[in-house]
Design a protein around this nucleic acid. Sequence first.
DNA 1: GCCCGAAAGCTATGACAGGTAGCCGCATCT
DNA 2: AGATGCGGCTACCTGTCATAGCTTTCGGGC
Lengths: 186, 186
Amino acid sequence: MPRAGLNSDAVVDVALALVDEKGPEALSLAAVADRAGVAAPSLYKHIGSLADLRDLMAVKILHAMARVSASAALGRSRDDAVAALMRAYRDFVLAHPGWYTLVPLDPLRHGPAPMAEAARDLLEVFFAVLRGYGLTDAAATHATRRVRAAVHGFAVLQAGGGFGLAEDVEETYDQLIAMVTASLPH
Amino acid sequence: MPRAGLNSDAVVDVALALVDEKGPEALSLAAVADRAGVAAPSLYKHIGSLADLRDLMAVKILHAMARVSASAALGRSRDDAVAALMRAYRDFVLAHPGWYTLVPLDPLRHGPAPMAEAARDLLEVFFAVLRGYGLTDAAATHATRRVRAAVHGFAVLQAGGGFGLAEDVEETYDQLIAMVTASLPH
DNA sequence: GCCCGAAAGCTATGACAGGTAGCCGCATCT
DNA sequence: AGATGCGGCTACCTGTCATAGCTTTCGGGC
């Protein structure tokens, strides 16, 4: 039995690929082990539990989202930046719908320190964009929540097939972005 | 062994109460059977499977949401009606966060006929409220999606503890409602 | 008032999940 | 070359959904 040469990070990557392909329901230690070419109990040499694995996956996903969002907003400001951020965020969810469901809704208070850190990175992108409007403190928090609620709601619904009617979904998203930017100072 | 006098509806009610109390993770046939005072396999005399039970629960939940939403909008129009609808919807989610997670995001195409019917009832409330703005056809669909995305996103995030910062969440929701109504014709 | 069938309960069993215990062998470092 | 520890394994536990097949209760027709 040659060694598989696994480590914690590799296990997380295998699990992420699995969820990307077969959806979050298919995430089981047995499936991850199988895909990694290893017996299920062997995974416990690298992760603490299935819940732990989920947390590690969420951290990686949050980092990816922060990276994508930040690079989308980079070099833009105000309405342009908000639109780019909202599109990048939504597109990420659509590209990896399974991943997104693994991210807890309350990553700031939810998990271990790395989770909170990754979530703060993403949150910081939202705050940075809103600073372009002169928003700080409470106003920035309220505005961030508005943006997040809109983009999260839309992305989840679209990814879940929730927009069943025939009208163009992209047109709706353009309108949603306009709705959000109109609520920001001008 | 005296009979428990169960039927499909009673099983669904037991399951709903269970989820309301212990959360959606606690929903298992064993737990439902226990709470109903019956052995687990006996449930199969009333429901087809756990997935079936979930569907039946979702239908009941959608009906309750349609009822609550319709009665909130009743006797109001335009911005008043939208605000009332959004508050009623969000309050329902907060009152029964476990229930809401059982409702599929695509109930119209997802399930058996009763599910689609219940979803249509709820959707119709949104459309009816928007008719007060003279919105029909495509414009009404886009507007409904904007409202739904905003309220769904906010409700899910709030119920999930996603608004961790100190600022008043009710204030944010007021702003979200204003953001939505501002996007409707005036 | 009885009987018989349908409905509703049960026990037993199987397949599969996460998780634990404890053994073994590969690989590296001295 | 040998000792050591890490990464893999098999075997087994509990809890889950689900099925098969038996038994008992209930209610309607005679």
